[in-house]
Design a protein around this nucleic acid. Structure first.
Lengths: 349, 349
DNA sequence: CTGAAAGCGCTTACAG
DNA sequence: CTGAAAGCGCTTACAG
């Protein structure tokens, strides 16, 4: 009457073998084993093989806590986010973090997640990350100019790179997507379609990239005043509200450009509630190219940002910096427009 | 001619003070400092204060690498995910991980992210996590019955809890949302509205929770055969395809129930492409209550799953288990229906 | 209640 | 090219 599938018996974790035991079995010193482990070229091929054999047989794995204590590195990278909850629920951050983690894994590093809430900063936990040797370096995502604590890392000489945001005057290491070019492409496209009355729903101007979008937009539409702009705070909710506000002021709008896809989705929602057809009556353009943007009706025209690649590159550069490279990191990744269904030629009056 | 904003000068990281230095300054032994640090009750109030003062003045922070090497714990938890990229771009995982990270931080633990790709498993990296002392325990998210490697942790005696999936026959520790009750609520509601021709777009049946939904659905609609079911593989794309397939077979369908919101969103997209009105002609119900579901038009009726709470609870329980608690972890969190706009009374024929 | 000593498991000069 | 020894910065029995 055996149960159809045996529950697993929980064993006591086995005692791990140490480097000393390997040294003993191989008849060498622990120094030699250590050097074999670290591919130190001083070791002869012969002893290298002899020691490897013992290591493999014993299934020995070096304790990385001990390695970190003796050595210089923890081989752990921190990812700092403002609020974890919304950040992680967001495809934008998801791509960024995936890029970081994949690259880190390939370069033999672990990644730890940290949410930099106000009290985290107040208690200087961001510096504790280094002082207590939790990490060798950090990547910062989703912060803005008001987050002055970001300067602390450089001041203290700790490797840190900002991903997909800019703090040019701070002289901080950064990897960003080209928001300027992306915005330029959108404006060119909308103007080619004949649109002149265009509303902009931008993200919070605390964020440098939002300011870039606003800046380019204004340059490309000198005839439009600030009543054509509205803050959508990066969210669907505010995207909806912003759309209503814009349309109250300018019922003759023929296009809405949003600083991210979530706000664009909010705009489409608002337009649909108002019985306005997209793109027949109003065109909508987003920014980011999150997965959902393909699945809404009409599918959203937007700018593709290489978030995964940005995370990947930032991580690679950070590790180089940890290893002693000293040039300032300041990379820009190119972006491109993705045409879908939410945009069309301007309707005739 | 000073620059408007000085770029930061990158300092050399300062030399950290050690416990020995604190001991010297306080005129006690390192053992005493250590005991003060760990709130050991053996220490007198007087010496405790004396030592604390020196610690504060020096801004001393214990090196946690050294602490881990001497002590029993690393105070690091691993979060294991199948594929990072899609997982993190998904609100479902985002909530789960936020719940885990927040709780971990409150209990003084760090969280490291690990993507369990096929070669990760093949190279036994999941056990290396423990063998090399990267973590004290792991939380597993998004796996299914084919991921037999999950048994390895329990076999080796390593603390592991599965979050929001079930492996009942494996006897593994788990924290899950109540899919059974959620599905039951959906079926009751749809049947109250008069629907009898209901199509089910379920997630992959490898996943236990998908099987629960299928099981309840069949029990509640004994008159419907398997042609009313279609696999939507948890994605929007397949949700679209599944909807078309279902409607080809049953043009008289009046309701579609999807095993997650993404597939439900796909269904709405497909219906819209076919010119079918939701909910006037067909009602749509999702599962998960991801943020987007409120912002589509019509807003999606769905089942709310407490993902954040599941992550939080799983993390708390895992830490208890690490600390020596030995009871099997098997918790279920309740779910509830959220009525929005995508459902309505059955249309008369 | 506190101190001296050993030990955690590695790496890294330094001899030879 | 390899070994003996010191050291990384803590914690934990063990004396006293």
């Amino acid at each position: 009457m055996a149960a159809p599938s045996e529950p697993i018996t929980r064993a006591k974790p086995a005692k791990r073998v140490s480097i000393r035991e390997i040294a003993r079995q191989a008849g060498v010193s622990t120094a030699t084993v250590s050097m074999v482990l670290n591919d130190n070229p001083k070791i002869t091929q012969a002893t290298r093989e002899k020691v490897r054999k013992v290591i493999d047989r014993a299934g020995y794995q070096p304790n990385r806590i001990a390695q970190s204590l003796s050595g210089k590195y923890t081989r752990v990278l921190g990812v700092l986010l403002p609020t974890l909850r919304h950040a992680l629920a967001d495809p934008y951050f998801g791509e960024l973090i995936s890029g970081i983690c994949d690259r880190a894994a390939r370069l033999g590093h672990k990644v730890t997640l940290e949410s930099a809430k106000p009290d985290f900063i107040r208690e200087k936990k961001h510096l504790e990350l280094f002082d207590r040797r939790f990490v060798d370096g950090v990547l910062c995502i989703g912060f803005n100019d008001r987050h002055v604590f970001l300067k602390d890392f450089a001041k203290a000489g700790h490797p840190m790179v900002v991903v997909n945001n800019q703090f040019d005057s701070w002289g901080v290491d950064q990897v960003v997507c080209d928001y300027r070019s992306g915005t330029d492409q959108v404006m060119t496209y909308l103007q080619q379609l004949g649109h002149t009355k265009i509303g902009l729903i931008h993200g919070s101007p605390d964020v440098f990239t939002s300011r870039v979008i606003i800046d380019v937009f204004k340059h490309r539409t000198p005839e439009l005043d600030d009543t054509f702009l509205e803050d959508g705070h990066f969210t669907e909710e505010h995207g909806i509200a912003a759309t209503h506000a814009l349309l109250e002021r300018h019922p003759d709008l023929t296009a809405i450009f949003a600083g991210n896809d979530k706000m664009a989705l909010g705009a489409m929602r608002a337009l649909s509630l108002r019985g306005i057809k997209v793109p027949e009556q109003i065109s909508v353009v987003g920014f980011d190219d999150i997965p959902y943007s393909k699945f809404v009706t009409p599918a959203l025209t937007t700018v593709h940002l290489p978030f995964y690649e940005a995370g990947d590159l930032a991580c690679e550069r950070l590790i180089q910096r940890i290893r002693g490279k000293n040039d300032r990191i300041n990379e820009t990744l190119s972006t491109h427009l993705v045409l879908r269904e939410s945009t069309g030629i301007v309707p005739r009056a």
